[in-house]
């Protein structure tokens, strides 16, 4: 089985950066993500995002395996429930400001 290329339905992973800020304190677009399925490694922002689903689904650009799933559902109480499945990410490497480092 192969896939019909449907670029109209696919975004690049950079579109995931904003939503992930609800849970993480840094922009993860440049973080290197390693796929649990094929060991392929690329910046999170260069993976493939499917946004027309009940949750955001990020897939590996090499093997199309699922890297992560993420959703945030707002409630009338003003609270949102964030749900993240990170099981397709074998490794995530990011560069962040060091705690206590002088600037």
């Amino acid at each position: 089985m192969t896939s019909i290329d449907t670029p109209d339905r696919r975004l690049d992973g950079n579109a995931l950066a904003g939503p992930l800020l609800e849970l993480f304190t840094i922009d993860l677009s440049a973080a290197m993500a390693t796929c649990v399925h094929c060991d392929g490694t690329a910046p999170l922002g260069e993976q493939q995002l499917y946004a027309d689903a009940p949750a955001l689904v990020l897939r590996c650009r090499d093997c199309t395996g699922v890297l992560l799933r993420y959703s945030a559902d707002s409630h009338s109480t003003g609270i949102a429930t964030v749900r993240a499945d990170l099981s397709g990410l074998r490794l995530l490497v990011a560069h962040v400001p060091a705690a206590g480092a002088s600037r």
Partner: peptide, 13 residues
């Protein structure tokens, strides 16, 4: 008829 897709559309032989 909204199309929801969580991945690429398979090409089926």
């Amino acid at each position: 008829f909204p199309v929801l897709s969580a991945g690429p559309t398979p090409r089926v032989d």
